[in-house]
Design a protein around this nucleic acid. Structure first.
Lengths: 381, 381
DNA sequence: CTCCTTTTGGCAAACGTTGTCAAGAACCAA
DNA sequence: TTGGTTCTTGACAACGTTTGCCAAAAGGAG
């Protein structure tokens, strides 16, 4: 016991000595560095950028070899506590950050996952993106995002950017890329898709049961006594829209309501199209007491069209959306909608990619929608 | 003339020969590869990932040295059209993508700009982020995004991630990082800030004249005859909020309206706080005919609070926000607001960073707000 | 045919890191 | 003292690029 205490004291002493040495050395170093720094002065910003510290710099400063520093950082070797301490001090002092470029090059993988989104600026995709960020927290992997601006060619370019960065895996959010390309991609890299189902790749797709969502929304309306329910579709033939429409049809027939094609209007998932859909419906004199829009953005547009004509929601017409965007909680009135757990889906996609990377078994990845009843729907008059 | 034609024919012939050789070689290669491929079979996906093509692979396939391929790609060498052609064909065929990790390592810069945002999922920051993306299009630089989730510690971590990726420049959007740290950062890297003004770094800040915006908004209300105008602040002491408030005060005194502290309520830039602000005002019996919220999100919250109490907008109370988020165009009624050109500001930040990187003179980077009058404001009763 | 210039393409050395291998050092037993 | 074992550390070769330098080869002039 006494021996152990003595040992600790000794260690403490040594450590103190080391620190003193380091400090004086650091002062020396600063003294040496400053003149050259001043010399550069007001030149172009590029020149002014200091050379980033490298592992070799740290090694030199600590008086050990680069390998030792590397081993300390990766924790793959036993080193004397003293050496470790000395190195750690230098790392702190020099503010050293490992160069991931070099690491990636050497290790053959970048600990990076590429995320391809259609549109970085869309309330819909953002929650997913955020979920992905959360999902990678503390995993040792970092997501990097690249957006194709809803154009296929752009997406391809973004894909190349990601590929040339040697991402270890790829997460595709939505995307207009054809299935065939994705299948090809899946062969040469780890691929996870969210909000999209590619046949043959189901195990790597995180998706929502859109049919169920459409069914829930419509059933909610029919149980409130609505029989003339309009539907605004999303982008031409977009699977999400098609599936929600399928749910709509099923619910109608379950309720014994005949399908009326007049009640279906084409939109494109944007607010404006929701507005125009209602205008079209109304100007054609189509009667309806409820409207189901394939997403919240179109529901908002529809809401404005109704407001413009003095039609009250939900008193005159009930309105229901899809997605549960954050801001529709503050719509007037707060919008009844079908919640798509985008954050969770994003997180799931990240976990899925992680598991695939580490050869573990993938988590559950089909999500169910939830009906969120707020104030934009009411009993039919 | 005949000679030229003959020459072309010859070239074509050679090219055909080359292609045949390549094909057979590629078949050979595949043949060799396949067994090992099959051997791996259903193992972890990591193993299944094919080895990416390298410049050396291309060189070998084209029968030239790696240097030649590199020079062809960078356009820094004169080579026979034939050689170039041969190499290009192989690049296409092998689907070669340069390894940016290796390029960055060798060249000492990554052609990458790090973008640090508080929150990737916020309608406000997203437009800026999109602007930044646009700004870097075809510049040869790629932005990579990293979000600190509105927590300072997270932001620091995100910063380290970006630093370790050896970004050539940094764009900070908003951020809670203290000025001192940013000043420090600016010394060692190219730094551009958007939506924030750090003294000493004005030349690298892209910002909006918030005082003017607050002034415009309030003046709009006073000219409509309002004299009891409530103000909902943003986050405690946030400069944006403080400056807008300053504009509010100035406009009041210009209109000869005494400042009443009762009319000022604290919010936090979130919808909920706007709602609670109105509730607080109303339950305290404070009379007011107009409300100016320091951002659109709070204006939306306020709108809901008014709706809940049956107060009409703009008939009973006029409402004005700040930012001009995309969706407030579809608010009920469409919200009068002060437009902050976030997309343009993002683009400007990207250009600014680019110019700084290339030592050119920076573009203009102060932006003026624009009043957008829609339907939520009206003459005072 | 030689000499000179121009064109073309190979060689080798980096860049910062990691991992293998082996060299010392310290210790113990014989 | 020697031989063996364990522990700590350093040397060195990659990883995929880029680039300066140099050597062939080709063409032209004398």
């Amino acid at each position: 016991m006494e021996l152990y205490i003595l040992w600790c004291l000794l260690c403490g002493f040594f450590r103190a000595c080391i620190r003193m040495v380091c400090l004086s050395e650091s002062q020396l170093l600063c003294g040496e560095l400053e003149p050259s720094n001043r010399e550069v002065g007001c030149e172009s910003y590029v020149e002014r950028t200091k050379h980033a510290m490298t592992l070799t710099d740290v090694a030199r400063a600590a008086g050990v070899s680069p390998s030792t520093v590397s081993r300390i950082l990766s924790g793959t070797a036993r080193v004397t506590p003293e050496t470790r301490q000395r190195v750690m001090v230098e790392i702190k002092r020099l503010n050293y950050q490992p160069n991931v470029l070099a690491q990636g090059l050497k290790r053959g993988h970048s600990r990076t996952v590429g995320v391809l989104t259609q549109e970085l600026n869309s309330p819909f995709f953002n929650e997913t993106v955020q979920g992905i960020e959360y999902g990678f927290e503390d995993s040792g992997y970092d997501p990097i995002f690249s957006g194709g601006h809803s154009r296929k060619s752009e997406e391809r370019r973004a894909l190349d950017v990601l590929r040339s960065r040697r991402v270890d895996a790829l997460i595709v959010v939505g995307s207009f890329l054809p299935d065939a390309l994705l299948l090809e991609l899946a062969k040469e890299t780890i691929l996870v898709m969210v909000g999209r189902r590619v046949s043959g790749l189901e195990a790597q797709c995180v998706f929502l049961d859109n049919v169920q969502g459409g069914l829930d929304a419509t059933t909610h309306l029919t149980t409130l006594g609505h029989r003339r329910i309009a539907f605004v579709t999303g982008n031409n033939n977009h699977p999400d829209s098609a599936e929600r429409f399928q749910g709509y049809c099923t619910a109608l027939s379950t309720a014994g309501i005949p399908f009326d094609p007049q009640l279906v209007v084409a939109g494109d998932f944007g607010e404006q199209s929701g507005l125009m859909a209602v205008d079209a419906l109304l100007s054609q004199g189509v009667r309806f007491t409820a409207l189901f829009a394939a997403n919240d953005q179109m529901a908002c547009g529809a809401r404005l069209a109704l407001y413009r004509r003095g039609i009250r929601v939900p008193d005159d017409i009930s309105l229901i959306g899809f997605d549960d965007l954050k801001h529709v909680l503050y719509a007037i009135p707060p919008l009844t909608t079908v919640r798509q757990p985008m954050l969770e889906m994003g997180q799931c996609a990240a976990r899925l990619a992680l598991n695939l990377l580490e050869g573990k078994s993938p988590p559950e990845h089909t999500f169910s929608p939830t009906l969120v009843v707020r104030e934009s729907t009411a009993m039919a008059r």
